[in-house]
């Protein structure tokens, strides 16, 4: 399943959590004008460096599909960072 929501949270020294919830699909739609040239650039880079473009696309797709459920939480004293993919 494609990731639906990415939550990025951080807690500076003041101890208050700040969280940003990024809905992936709307964000992708908004960024699509940038995303398309980036994908094309990536495909050209694949051809230049002798990597199969189709394999690279399939691999990247698998990677994105496997992302939901990923969670990173790092705390150091009162500061903390959190990344959660749902």
């Amino acid at each position: 399943m494609i990731p639906r929501l990415v939550t990025v949270g951080w807690r500076p020294g003041d101890g208050r959590w700040r969280r940003v919830h990024v809905p992936v699909l709307p964000a992708l739609l908004v960024l699509s004008p940038l995303l398309l040239p980036a994908v094309l650039g990536g495909l050209v880079a694949c051809v230049v460096f002798g990597v199969s473009p189709l394999g690279a696309l399939r691999g990247a797709g698998r990677l994105v599909w496997a992302l939901p459920g990923t969670r990173f939480e790092i705390e150091q004293g009162r500061t903390a960072v959190l990344v959660n993919v749902r």
């Binding site: 496997a66 459920g69 990923t70 969670r71 990173f72 790092i74 705390e75 150091q76 004293g77």
Partner: peptide, 8 residues
Amino acid sequence: SRINIRVP
């Protein structure tokens, strides 16, 4: 310090 990582 606490590190909590969950990777599918």
